[in-house]
Design a protein around this nucleic acid. Structure first.
Lengths: 145, 145
DNA sequence: TAATAATACTTGATATATCAAGCAAAACTA
DNA sequence: TAGTTTTGCTTGATATATCAAGTATTATTA
């Protein structure tokens, strides 16, 4: 198979471009509602609210380094969106909970997050989405071999 | 259209996952050859070698902030991969050139970069790629409206 | 059970991302 | 042509990414 080799023709360029455009849109809308929260922080808030998770679990789920996770969580605690305590059954692990402020923020954020997704996926068909997911998954597998 | 709303079912999750996997693969292979160069730095080296570009132009092409570009270029100059001078026709602008060390590095890097792309796209058809590009482009447009 | 290994983070150092503010040169305009 | 705006880039501050090294705590193993 012949594949383009100039940087700007590669599919990776398109992928980067798209994800950056989506992140930009999301950040704008989120900041518009709550100025001191980022896209990832909103996602983390949502994850912790849905299910009790450790930092390590969150990091694995959203492809972040554990060190970054420590710092992001630290900031979210400092801004009072999260409450962090130690797990008494395993004193290495921390227990993360959304604070009242965090829950309130989340109530505002969820419709915004959903709206962002709708906006980004406007005019796409179910086939488009499934296709996209399928092809990306192939690439993902290739990269991990 | 009904679209999934749980974070891990969304297509954006797949996109992030894929681009991170690809970046990880690329970085590993690049570092293996030249330990002090990153994926973006390799790309920048390639761009500058192909065509004379200003920092601003490079930043726009690879979706980077101008401030980041100043710092990345600064490091590449410091590591002696690039030579930076001022453009005498427009003293605001800088002229960037690959140094001999940069050119040598690039010679090593180009086959690696190409190989990474081949690896990542293994078993994909031309249709897959075109499809992917087309769908991503739709999302990209939606995000920019 | 003592030594070792693994786990769940944390910290330091450096690079990059992002926003805001600033600077000098160039372009534009009244 | 003087004043204003734009352009190309830089710097500062803060957040995040990444790698390496370190600290408790828990689990394993000889």
């Amino acid at each position: 198979m012949k594949i383009s080799h100039t940087p700007f023709d590669t599919i990776f360029y398109s992928i980067e471009e798209t994800i950056k455009a989506y992140r930009k849109l999301s950040l704008k809308e989120i900041k518009n509602a709550i100025s001191d929260i980022t896209v990832d922080q909103a996602l983390i808030l949502q994850m912790i609210n849905d299910k009790q998770l450790t930092q390590t679990e969150i990091a694995d789920l959203i492809f972040k380094d554990y060190a970054s996770m420590t710092r992001i969580i630290g900031l979210m605690v400092k801004k009072n969106y999260l409450i962090k305590t130690t797990n008494e059954n395993d004193r290495r692990a921390s227990v993360l909970k959304t604070s009242p402020k965090g829950e309130l923020a989340l109530k505002q954020l969820i419709p915004i997050i959903n709206q962002n997704r709708e906006t980004a996926l406007n005019n796409l068909t179910i086939e488009d989405i499934n296709n996209l997911k399928h092809i990306l998954n192939k690439i993902n597998q290739n990269c991990k071999k």
